[in-house]
Simulated scan of single mutants.
Amino acid sequence: MHAPSPALLPADYALYTRPEAAQAARATVSTVDRWIADGALPALRVGARRILIRRAHLHAYLAAHDTTRTPDPAEAAAPADLSALLTYDEAAAALRVSRTTMDRLQADGSLRMYRVGGRWKIPAEALAEYIDAHTTPATCGPLAVHPA
C-alpha cells in the first residue's frame, strides 16, 4: 500500500501509521503508543489491528508540547475539497488498509459508498466522516475536548 495522492484527501486528513508518527515526532513507537494509551493523542482504529494518527493531530500535539517550535506555513491545513469521488483502491490507500478491510467496511455499512457504472465510488466527504467518527478523541492534555 502506498500513501494517498495529495489530491485525494485534504492535508488535514493525511494519516500516519504508528512508526511513521514516531519518526515524524522523533520519538519511539512505544512513546507514541503511550501518548495514545494515556489519551493525549487521538487515534483512529481501522479493522482489527491498524491504528492510524491524523497528521494534523500529531503536529498539534507536538506544537503544544514544544514551546521553542515556530509554526511551519507548509503545515497549515489547506481548504478541504471533499467533493471528489475516490475509487475503491484509492480509498483503501488513503485509509492504508487492504481491499479485504474495505470489503468489511462496505459490508457492515461503516463507510458510505456508491455503485457507479459497476464500480464502487467513495466520496472524499464520506471518507473524512469515517475518519472523524472513528477517531478516539484525546481525553487529557492540550488536544482533549472538554464539555462546556
Rank of each mutant, 00 (worst) to 15 (best):
P79S: 07
L58Q: 00
L95A: 03
G118A: 06
A56L: 10
A64M: 09
L52G: 03
G117M: 04
A80W: 04
A126L: 01
A84P: 05
A48C: 07
L44F: 01
L86W: 00
A92K: 01
S110R: 12
L52C: 06
P10F: 00
R104A: 15
A107N: 12
L9I: 15
K121D: 03
I36V: 12
L86H: 03
Y61A: 07
P10T: 00
A74Q: 09
V29Q: 08
V116D: 06
G39M: 06
A40N: 06
M113T: 12
A22W: 06
R34V: 10
L95K: 02
R26V: 14
R54C: 03
L9A: 11
M113A: 13
L105W: 05
A37V: 10
Y88R: 15
Y130C: 09
L105N: 08
T101D: 09
V97E: 03
L82T: 12
A14D: 10
T87D: 10
D38L: 12
A25I: 04
I122F: 09
W120A: 15
V46F: 01
L82M: 01
H65I: 05
Q106T: 14
K121R: 15
G39S: 04
A107P: 07
D12P: 08
T68R: 13
L95T: 07
Q106F: 12
L105Y: 03
R45K: 11
V116Q: 11
Q23A: 14
A74E: 13
R26Q: 14
A37N: 12
A24I: 04
A60K: 02
E75N: 13
A24F: 09
A14N: 09
A43H: 12
A92I: 10
L85F: 13
L9W: 04
Y88K: 15
S98N: 13
R34H: 08
R26D: 14
P123W: 05
L9P: 01
P73T: 06
D89C: 09
D89N: 13
D12C: 11
A126M: 03
A93P: 05
T87V: 03
L127G: 00
A94L: 07
T70W: 08
P19T: 03
A27T: 10
Y114N: 11
A40E: 13
A94G: 05
A7D: 15
D108L: 03
A22S: 07
I36Q: 02
Y16R: 08
A64D: 04
Q106S: 14
Y13D: 01
A64P: 00
Y88M: 14
Y88L: 14
